[in-house]
Design a protein around this nucleic acid. Sequence first.
DNA 1: CATGAATGAGTATTCATTCAT
DNA 2: GATGAATGAATACTCATTCAT
Lengths: 193, 193, 193, 193
Amino acid sequence: MSGAQERPLRADAARNRAKVLDVATEVFTTRGVGVPTEEIARAAGVGVGTLFRHFPTKEALLEAVMVRRLEAMAAMTAQLADRADPAEPAEALFACFRLVVEQSAGKNEFAQALAAAGVDVHAALREPTGEIQARLAGLLSRAQRGGQIRPDLGLPELLALLVGTGTTLEQLGGDPAARERIFDVVFDGLRPR
Amino acid sequence: MSGAQERPLRADAARNRAKVLDVATEVFTTRGVGVPTEEIARAAGVGVGTLFRHFPTKEALLEAVMVRRLEAMAAMTAQLADRADPAEPAEALFACFRLVVEQSAGKNEFAQALAAAGVDVHAALREPTGEIQARLAGLLSRAQRGGQIRPDLGLPELLALLVGTGTTLEQLGGDPAARERIFDVVFDGLRPR
Amino acid sequence: MSGAQERPLRADAARNRAKVLDVATEVFTTRGVGVPTEEIARAAGVGVGTLFRHFPTKEALLEAVMVRRLEAMAAMTAQLADRADPAEPAEALFACFRLVVEQSAGKNEFAQALAAAGVDVHAALREPTGEIQARLAGLLSRAQRGGQIRPDLGLPELLALLVGTGTTLEQLGGDPAARERIFDVVFDGLRPR
Amino acid sequence: MSGAQERPLRADAARNRAKVLDVATEVFTTRGVGVPTEEIARAAGVGVGTLFRHFPTKEALLEAVMVRRLEAMAAMTAQLADRADPAEPAEALFACFRLVVEQSAGKNEFAQALAAAGVDVHAALREPTGEIQARLAGLLSRAQRGGQIRPDLGLPELLALLVGTGTTLEQLGGDPAARERIFDVVFDGLRPR
DNA sequence: CATGAATGAGTATTCATTCAT
DNA sequence: GATGAATGAATACTCATTCAT
């Protein structure tokens, strides 16, 4: 599925790439994508040239950041789904929901990418988003068959709610009890009445 | 309550001002605030100079756009609240919720402003946002006292949900039935179980 | 010597013109020529349109301001020269020198115009500057013939010193004793040793 | 005494920086500070970005230009003062005076900065201006104690005369004999009568 | 490969001047 | 005539991207 075969990076190059990715994740998440690349490079301890060697475009860097996060999320989602109590698919669905929402924290571009997958998302995002979507879809339909989730809800609505709930929490700030209440509202709303 | 007394604008000036405001509303809403002022001016059929005569700053323009929308929302919210069936405050609350969410369409900065009111909002936004918040707060507590809304929910959570639901719908796109299902989920979630 | 015959201005127009001229004099003198025309118009209580009707260009306004001042200076110079004690032409010369320097206060563009007269000065400035120069030249040569001023000094040097002394005083600020010492230095320097 | 330790510039970068500084010196001196940065960049054969990389602000560029000149002037002033015949401090003072006036040619902002030192001058200018002022002050008081300069003159007057004499010469143009006469006048005026 | 200097298109804002009311 | 709204060229500064060292 991947394109050109890439030669393994030299150790220092790999380290630089990783450092940039880490810093960019942090920076994009907390301060948005408006931050100058130069600043990211400096924070990562490399020159801009190095940054652009690894990521030919700022957008490519953002994409890489998102791919990495989405892959992690895909793995965690898979775990949660596999270990789920077969009698309680809704619980696993909720756990995945929380996971994605919380991992998408910050400027929320991750959940958005996830929801947009297949529409106009960059090729590199297709795989992890597809996998997460598939897991969610599986849990959703099992929970619906089990009567734990309202039957009229499709995957698109679930994904949109994922993104929206991220925004809700971002608005709300850090109060953990209040955040919990938001999840309560949303999860209650997802259940059949 | 307003500051300097302004003379009524000349007819053509008023027309230009309105045109700029309309275009800016449209543009900011659909494409975000990153759009160049020159483009807005061109789309409004005026020179940049004219735009800046009416709105001394890009930020001032954005503020004016938001004030206008928020004032309209405040008026509609007031109507809805006043005409509400006293026995059904939750219905009125939901109606206001829908209203705000739907009017906040696009890049969703309206609902965000509403939720941020009193925090770091520009003076001009304080009044309309304050009024809307007051209405929502009133309906919320009445509905809670009547047992129609879960009692553990505060105004901050409600406002955050407003913003988040806007994002949810934005993600979802135009399918009306699906949008309706989102409202169902959220409103069901708001009710005591 | 003047060009097209101008019809006399209507009373209000004349008043407006005068007001603009007064304000512009004040403003240019204290704050330099960088001040926006709009601000001058406002301070004069007229619209920009009116200002530009009377002075087709900002430069024309500056020129008018200077002409007026230079004309006043020419008149005062003439008086001083005419009333001078024939035995003490140097005293009259010094009096004129002080007069010009002090009237040129502020951004010092008047003395500069005076010194530049005949070089690249606008036509309108030629007459008053010419007259002042003639008076100074007369006093200078009389004082030199009388042995009161060093004989090697030409009018150009005197004019340049006029401008420079204006700058010196501007630098010095308001202390009257210190200003007096500057005049002492310059006038002593002008005398034969 | 200086702040952050700067690594030596790369050869090409140093060349560009110097070129910009040279061009800016020339341009600011002959045409004033109103000249567009882009023009300076073009004249220096670099892009605007390069100019702004070296001097983050137009004002910073002006400052750098002035610092460089003032430092050169400080060095030369120091030499003159140190080599001065102890019996003739006035001669050394006059030599310094000439030096500063002649180096401050053009729009004369150097001498002005010198005179303003300690008032509202940028930090970077404080050191060289302070040193020059100190030298002048030392020579002045020695010459006054020796009866070679009129005793009523303070450093402020001397500095103001420095600036003013610069303006005088600027007005006068290039005739060397006439320029010499100006110095004669000023220096004679500085002596006790 | 890494570096960071160079590039220049792009952006908000100002202001002299024109022109419809 | 007077007004002030409209105009748009001009200007300082930013930042993604390229390229010489």
